[in-house]
Design a protein around this nucleic acid. Sequence first.
DNA 1: TGTCCCGGT
Length: 800
Amino acid sequence: MTCSTTSHLKFTAPRTKMAKKRKLDGNADVVKIGNKTISLEGYLSKKLKKEAPASDVKDERIQNPDLPLTETLPTVKSDAEDQQKSSKIPSSKRPAGDPEYLKTRQSLPLWAHQDEIRRLLRKDDVLVLVGETGSGKSTQVPQFLYQEEWCQKKRVRIGSQGRAEEVTVGGIIAITQPRRVAATTLAHRVSREAGTPLTGERGGSDKKGASSRGLVGYSVRFDHRVPPGTRIKFVTEGMLLQELLRDPHLRQYSAIVVDEIHERSVDVDLLSGFLKQIVSGDKAGRGGIPLKVVIMSATANVESIKKFFSGADDKRPQTPATQEAQPGPSVQYLQIEGRQYPVVATHTPKPVADIQETLLKTIFKLHTEEPLHDKYGPNDILAFLTGQEEIEGAQKLIEEYAATLGPKVPKIKVFPLFGQLSMEAQHEAFQPVKGDFTRKIVLATNIAETSVTVPGVRFVVDCGKAKVKQYRPRLGMESLLAKPISKSSAIQRAGRAGREGPGKCFRLYTQETYDDLQKTDLPEILRTDVLGAVLTMKARGIDDVLSFPLMDPPEVESVEKALLHLHLLGALADDGSITETGRKMVMFPVTAPYARVLLAAADPEYDCLLEVIDIISCITAGDDIFMQIQSEEVREEVEAFRKELSRREGDLLTYLTTMQLYVAENTDRAQWCKARRLNVRNMKQALNIRKQLRGLCVKQGMTKQPAPDPQPFSPISPEQADTILKCFLKGFALKTAMLAPDSSYVTAHGKHVVAIHPSSVLHGQKKEAIMFLEHVYTQKNYAKKVSAIQAAWIAEALEQ
DNA sequence: TGTCCCGGT
């Protein structure tokens, strides 16, 4: 047999070398790593190579295969009415936009639809807009609308004759985003397109450009740029919910554009409910001026969303309130093509037994058969896996096998990509790979599905699963397990191969498995503890939370559990109305139990507010400020440093010591973190949260202005430690466990066996009783953020 | 005795 294909040649060359180098029991097609043996035999042979390709598996073209890929420039015909309207605005007041960007804007699929969008919103108040990836909806829609007549600021009289007041309504369009980076980068992009500056903290407190007016602004936590004259404001969903506390009628806005609604965060579900109430209400709170709502989705299954806003879907129990509700508004609908290259998806002919093995084979088959570059750019590979452990295992396998390949085979560089990775390590995965003769392979979790875009990707490998957190209200705990993804998620993953040129997606599951996938993911509100959602509603004036409009209402039992829990925390009175305590709790950007602990800490009985703020700042800053240590050598080295941080009372006091030493360190905090393997990004975030919480507590009169940093470090006494832990029990009385005779921990509430998670400083230790802030089922029932407490404290805490 | 999908106020 002659080796006629180059790819085969490429593989034959390294085999002898690999055999020499790795001494693999005489079988060159076997890779042995740890206790795992993977056979590549057959797969790389010509025989199988003829069978494997797409001929015997079904192909599926994803997203507009017929779309012309050449950029067409539609001629824009503005109608007479439009020209007349815009000519009334003095040209000096009409930002023309930056001509440099005009050509690019005109090439967007959305550009040709701008008159239609304006017309639909003049007619009705709600528009559902489906625009697939690359349509330009997030940047263009607000620019099309802000000069509309209905979008101008107006003075109106509000209230009955006796106590009428004149207020300003409208003038600004808000565009909500699920993530901070999206809100800030979109704002920068639109301000450049508009040719106006994006400067000024809260309308101009910084020196440079403080007085310069701008069209575009943004507002996310810890970062606000709203120049005077802002008409288009990008915000996170959570930020707009927060504004809703102060201004229930959203009076400063003429329109709210809800972007990426298909992601279905709890925040966007709540926001949709409030927006539905505003658009279908009597508008008295806005002086009769309507609020326009544009709902934007990247996926086309919006039937339920349309029904929700038009009121045709009333799933709520029939109560006097729902029966009297007015008929909903009419909802306009528009679908716009995306600008994606076609992606061909292939499925495996048979179910895959070993994901790692099939992943390795798929990647090396691609690597040897496909060119490194083509006219569209690099041909890199992005693989979707479930978690850190799987990614690191796969990386090791790929690197070991790649090292055995001969000099004629292109090199491979593997980049892991998951949330807990440092900023620099994540950044590396986005850079073009160094060296012409190298292919980039990114092994990612779901972070690459929505949160970040890896450039250069033309091949996607999809394992078909993702880890999903699910709350179990009956058990009061959550699970984090790998589950099959939805069809919509599979399509989204495949689409990542078609951003820069025609792509291919290799699904490591069968066509049949794909066909059986759920159409969409379960929205977060059905997978999470609704405690926070219920408190959010109560604080915004919703008395009967069960009749609040939600696209997917949680089970009544879950809501009732949350109401009881809030009552136990003192946020709700016996009649279900919100208490003073509850109103104070929602002011804090932390979950209800933490907010309760903050309030208790200000009580003279405990008097440990600054300490509690330090602890809560560390906990809510990210997954964990302590990074996991891989190798044994590093562990010994780091343990020496970490010893001075850890406290025998457990994780909470360890966090406190860490924060106190961190702020006392005044030479090189980054280096200090590095030596202790602390996540620098999370520590900086913790410091931001600490500053915000301190500010809020001062404002609430809970404490006087704390002394500025750096303060000298003085360790907490055992008595003070007891007080702090008792204070945390005010929020976490139910999350406690006692040591049983068989050395297991049994929870006080529910009598479940829990194990102390290996990330805890108390892992492997036996204490009389423990308190834990998190309860997650993964491999086992794990207790996380654990502290040692006295058994007597549990009864004491439960009595209150 | 051995570990963590992604976001957000």
